Simulated assay, not measured.
Amino acid sequence: MNVLTIVSHPRKDSLTSKVALEFIKGLEDAGHKVELFDLYQEEFDPLVREKDEPDWKSEKNIYSSVVHKEMERMNRNDALAFVFPVWWYNIPAMLKGYIDRVWNYNYAYGNSKLPHEKALWIGLAGGSKAHFAKRKYDKMIEHYLNIGLADYTGIPHSKVEILYDTLSEKALDPVQFGDFQKELLTKGYQLGTEFSRWE
């Protein structure tokens, strides 16, 4: 399976980026082909300008060359994976802008749907699992990504994995950080190796 892996974090040395690399390693070890798209490193512009605003009266919209390039990138792959920090109980603005701009009318919704079999959303959250569950933030995020985005655009299989506690005491303690980071990286690798085992 060809998996487009989209990473959204401004720092290349971030925990998010490290988890993404381990996830990719797991995918490749499981026999998948990976195309990496780092939104920040490639300086993707997330702002929707007039050229990329759909004309609802038109059956066929011609968007900017950047958007058509990203549609072609998506079309080269069978599945999608996203690795990102959870900010304000949501995906980062950069990733939201990418979706707003590229998952456009009559490509991802309207008279056409996305061709991908599955999407995996890997979010790194500063809070604890109990904190997210208490206010149902976890369910809110899952519903938005699995139903509001994936299901709406025709992706039949979508899954959300949140890696918690990235701002916990053990994560911020230099003595404990090594073991904590190893735990998250191992989970990232595991998600890659198990990518084809869930529906």
Results as ranks from 00 to 15, higher is better:
residue 96 K to Q: 14
residue 99 I to F: 15
residue 95 L to K: 02
residue 93 A to S: 15
residue 84 F to D: 05
residue 89 Y to A: 10
residue 55 D to N: 12
residue 91 I to H: 07
residue 78 D to M: 09
residue 61 N to Y: 02
residue 108 A to V: 05
residue 88 W to H: 07
residue 83 V to H: 06
residue 103 W to I: 07
residue 98 Y to A: 10
residue 70 E to S: 10
residue 106 N to K: 12
residue 59 E to C: 03
residue 99 I to K: 10
residue 87 W to F: 12
residue 111 N to S: 15
residue 66 V to D: 12
residue 67 V to N: 08
residue 55 D to R: 04
residue 103 W to N: 08
residue 93 A to N: 09
residue 93 A to G: 14
residue 94 M to S: 06
residue 74 M to Y: 02
residue 75 N to S: 06
residue 75 N to A: 06
residue 74 M to D: 01
residue 61 N to D: 10
residue 100 D to Q: 09
residue 58 S to D: 08
residue 51 K to F: 04
residue 89 Y to E: 05
residue 71 M to I: 09
residue 92 P to K: 01
residue 86 V to A: 04
residue 64 S to C: 14
residue 86 V to G: 04
residue 95 L to Y: 01
residue 75 N to V: 00
residue 76 R to N: 10
residue 53 E to L: 15
residue 100 D to R: 03
residue 105 Y to Q: 05
residue 88 W to F: 12
residue 95 L to G: 05
residue 60 K to I: 09
residue 57 K to D: 05
residue 53 E to A: 11
residue 48 V to Q: 08
residue 82 F to Q: 11
residue 88 W to V: 03
residue 50 E to N: 07
residue 98 Y to W: 12
residue 69 K to L: 06
residue 48 V to T: 13
residue 65 S to Q: 10
residue 94 M to H: 07
residue 70 E to T: 02
residue 101 R to Y: 00
residue 94 M to D: 04
residue 83 V to D: 08
residue 60 K to S: 11
residue 103 W to H: 13
residue 60 K to E: 13
residue 106 N to H: 15
residue 76 R to T: 00
residue 82 F to V: 13
residue 62 I to Q: 09
residue 104 N to Q: 02
residue 77 N to P: 02
residue 73 R to K: 15
residue 78 D to V: 03
residue 79 A to E: 03
residue 72 E to H: 04
residue 96 K to M: 14
residue 103 W to Y: 15
residue 63 Y to D: 08
residue 87 W to C: 04
residue 59 E to L: 12
residue 61 N to F: 05
residue 70 E to G: 10
residue 59 E to A: 10
residue 61 N to L: 09
residue 61 N to Q: 08
residue 75 N to W: 00
residue 97 G to A: 08
residue 63 Y to G: 13
residue 87 W to S: 00
residue 58 S to E: 12
residue 76 R to A: 12
residue 87 W to Q: 01
residue 112 S to G: 03
residue 79 A to G: 01
residue 102 V to G: 00
residue 61 N to P: 02
residue 74 M to E: 03
residue 70 E to N: 15
residue 107 Y to T: 00
residue 54 P to N: 06
residue 88 W to S: 12
residue 91 I to D: 12
residue 105 Y to R: 09
residue 101 R to E: 05
residue 100 D to N: 13
residue 49 R to S: 15
residue 62 I to S: 10
residue 106 N to C: 14
residue 58 S to N: 11
residue 100 D to C: 11
residue 80 L to F: 07
residue 68 H to T: 04
